[in-house]
Amino acid sequence: MAGATRPRTVGERVADTDPSVGRILLVAAGALFWGWLVVSWVNRWLGGVIAPVGEPLVAPDAVEGALAAVPGLAAVAPDVAFVVGLTPTLAQGTWLTVVITGASLVCGFFIAVPLAVARVYGRFSAWLSLGYTELLRGTPLLAQLFVLYYGLNLAASVPAALSGVFPRDVVWVAILGFTLNGAAYQAEYIRGAVESVDEGQITAGRAIGLSKLESIYYVVLPQALRYAIPSWTNEFVYLIKYSSLAGFITVPELYYLANRVATETFRYTTVFLVLGAMYLALVLTASKFMERVDDRVAIPGLGADRER
């Protein structure tokens, strides 16, 4: 059965306690989370047609009043109202977190595939690829971001076409940094999968007259990229969380904004609990999504053993 050997996700374990109830709870939570995010983003883009920009979709005072009337919940009413008041900020920060993660992951993928192929099939290029991968994986990501931002001052040289797309041009620097770094990690996962493809596959490709590169493209990669999905999902999940480092180069993403609120209000516990829940929701969404993709592209007849 697909996924029999994979470490089970929280979602799966919740679902296992009672398949129907667990799944409904998870789907409901996901729908609520993404519904709130999308409505908040659309509201902002449309200039506040649902609620004034920067204001919560539901008034904090109303929430506090409603909760205060419920026996037993009155004690948490101020905290809940505080969190509701944070929601516009959180939605705004999450937007950048999602965009930075998504863009870096996709761009990194297109660098990672050639890196992985070069590592396995190249001669000179294998050394180049190895050097790149070790350098990027062997040095702190934060240091890499600092070099790009403070050292090379790249935020000042964002091309005119890209400048102004985001609230601050430094977002591009963050995307560049995560792309270059993530590519090295993705390349490692993909390399492992490429190596696991049987040598006879490429021989068979060569035997019908495909060139080596064509054999890799038409025969090896379609298999390797499927095999890579479960481990590659790790990089996806890490990147969501690592994207918080962008806050250290002044990108106003989720962590940056939450941290600012925490230092202003001194309500560290509440703010960082909510922040953690936000990242958890993003991570769960990513891993659930990739599980779906994995099932979708599974090769018929190959079960759990495809996850080599």
Partner: peptide, 15 residues
């Protein structure tokens, strides 16, 4: 190789 077909012991079908 286009003109010479080959059949392998281990089949080597594209999985």
């Amino acid at each position: 190789r286009r003109e010479v077909g080959m059949v392998f012991q281990s089949f080597n079908l594209f999985a």
